[in-house]
Computed example of a mutant assay.
Amino acid sequence: MKQIKGGGITWFKAHLVGVKGKVEKCKKVPIDIQYQIQKSIEEMKSKKRKVEEEYEDGNPCDEVTDLFHTQHIEAPHTATSQKGKCHIGNYFMPRTTPGAQPTLKSVMQSKEVIEKCDIAISTWMIDASVSFNATNSTYYQPMIDALYSMVPGYKGLKYYRVRGHFLNKWVEDVKKLSVDASHASKTVDLLFKLFKEIVMYVGPKNIVYIVTDNADNYVVAGRLLEREFPHIFWSPCAAHCVNLMFQDIGKLSEVTDIVSHASNITKYLYNHCHRLYLMRQFTHGKGILRPTPTRFATNFIALQSILAQKDALRALVTSTEWTSSAYSKDVKAKKCVEQVLDSNFWK
Rank of each mutant, 00 (worst) to 15 (best):
P236V: 11
T283G: 06
F92C: 08
C117R: 14
Q339H: 10
L269G: 04
D118S: 13
H69G: 07
S305D: 15
D145G: 04
A297K: 04
L313H: 06
H15I: 11
V51F: 01
T138H: 06
K205S: 12
S110E: 12
C117M: 10
T292R: 06
Y91A: 03
A262P: 00
I265H: 00
F12M: 15
V64C: 02
S40I: 07
T96H: 02
V17I: 11
H272I: 13
A312P: 02
L316K: 05
K2W: 04
K205C: 03
S260M: 09
A134D: 01
A262L: 02
A221R: 02
Q101W: 01
W346F: 05
E115S: 12
T266N: 01
A146L: 15
L307R: 14
I207Q: 02
E52F: 05
V340Y: 00
A146Q: 09
G222T: 06
C117Q: 10
A146S: 12
L190V: 15
K205Y: 09
P293E: 11
K347C: 03
S324D: 08
A181D: 15
E43K: 14
V179T: 13
Q281M: 09
V179F: 05
E115A: 12
V51T: 07
V174G: 03
I265V: 12
I144Q: 04
L225S: 02
K334M: 09
K169H: 11
M143N: 09
M44R: 14
I119H: 01
F195S: 03
P94D: 09
N168Q: 08
E54A: 11
I121L: 13
Q141C: 07
A215W: 01
K158W: 04
